[in-house]
């Protein structure tokens, strides 16, 4: 049931060297630098996004994800969901308006997987970059690199998948769109959506909590994915795998790493989900094909290289 959570709104990523990271996310991936704050954080957006930013980079001694934020339809929804989180025994932290630039109050909570999430409803809208919303052209000129069109989802690794699914579905209104199930019935991967996309956030079981697998960005076509791969070679950027296709969600994809070792994905295509659709299930013994549809086997890195 929909509870007023709309979509992934932003992700804050820790990087070892801010300048190298900005160069990667801006020049190579094609995000646009929108702002910086007193703490030195850098705010980026992808060009089709209407909100001012979707990616925040923070310099740290350890890479990884600080938090992922979901945008809600109204401040009332944020308040209501805050109450429901508290009633479930979740600890919440209220972050005042303005802590993130041009963003309203945020309510943070930790999922049973160990990851920090937040809900918010208000952020400055600067419109689609370079085209706006009045007689807009098809796309803006002057985009760099891969020309990523939007921040799409994160894949996160941690324990307690059942509790996390329950929290996301019963409190936040997410649906289970796809899953990987072991022979004994244990769910080892769960892909959750809060709209029509194949996934807005996904989790894979891992004993260590709060691990970051990747942040993913949408491209329009398979050709754009191939072009992204070309750019990775031109810039000698570490590629993890691809271009290939996922079995799960069937997206056409490439995985690579930012200069701090955080994994990124760009992808095109993929399935869609309506609330009346039953979850798509992959058997754990087909995990290789579920993740990398063509290789049909996992590379070692998929399960072990995390930040």
């Amino acid at each position: 049931m929909k509870k007023g959570v709309m979509r992934p709104g932003h992700v804050q990523i820790r990087v070892l060297d801010l300048n190298e990271a900005v160069k990667h996310y801006v020049e190579l991936m094609g995000l646009i630098e929108m702002d910086r704050d007193q703490e030195g954080r850098v705010y980026l957006k992808a060009w089709t996004e209407v909100d001012k930013y979707s990616v925040i980079l923070r310099e740290s001694y350890e890479p990884g994800m600080d938090f992922m934020g979901f945008k809600c339809t109204s401040e009332e929804v944020v308040e209501e969901l805050r109450k429901e989180l508290l009633a479930r025994g979740c600890e919440v932290e209220d972050i005042p308006e303005g802590d993130l630039k041009d963003c309203g109050r945020r309510v943070q909570f930790r999922a049973p997987t160990g990851h920090l999430f937040e809900l918010f409803a208000t952020k400055e809208q600067t419109g689609k970059w370079g085209v706006g919303d009045h007689n807009p052209e098809a796309w803006p000129r002057g985009l760099s690199g891969m020309r990523a069109s939007r921040f799409d989802h994160c894949l996160l690794y941690g324990p307690n998948l059942p509790e996390t699914l329950d929290l996301f579905s019963s409190v936040l209104g997410f649906d289970l769109a796809e899953q990987v199930v072991a022979p004994d019935g244990t769910r080892v991967a769960q892909f959750l959506t809060v709209g029509m996309k194949a996934h807005d956030v996904a989790f894979i079981h891992n004993d260590e909590p709060d691990k970051f697998h990747h942040a993913s960005f949408f491209l329009e076509t398979w050709h754009d994915v191939l072009r992204a791969a070309d750019l990775l070679s031109m810039t000698d950027t570490a590629i993890d795998i691809g271009p290939t296709r996922h079995g799960l969600t069937h997206g056409q994809t490439i995985y690579f790493f930012d200069p701090s070792g955080n994994r990124n994905e760009v992808f095109a295509g993929g399935d869609y989900h309506y609330p009346d659709h039953p979850p798509v299930t992959w058997d754990a013994d087909e995990l290789g094909k579920a993740i990398f549809y063509h290789d049909r086997q996992l590379n070692e890195r998929f399960l072990t290289v995390l930040t």
Binding site: P63, G64, A238, F257, P259, S260, G261, E300, R301
Partner: peptide, 12 residues
């Protein structure tokens, strides 16, 4: 034995 992120992040 193992190569990971090539970015100083994964420790492999």
């Amino acid at each position: 034995p193992k190569i990971g992120c090539k970015g100083g992040g994964c420790g492999l």
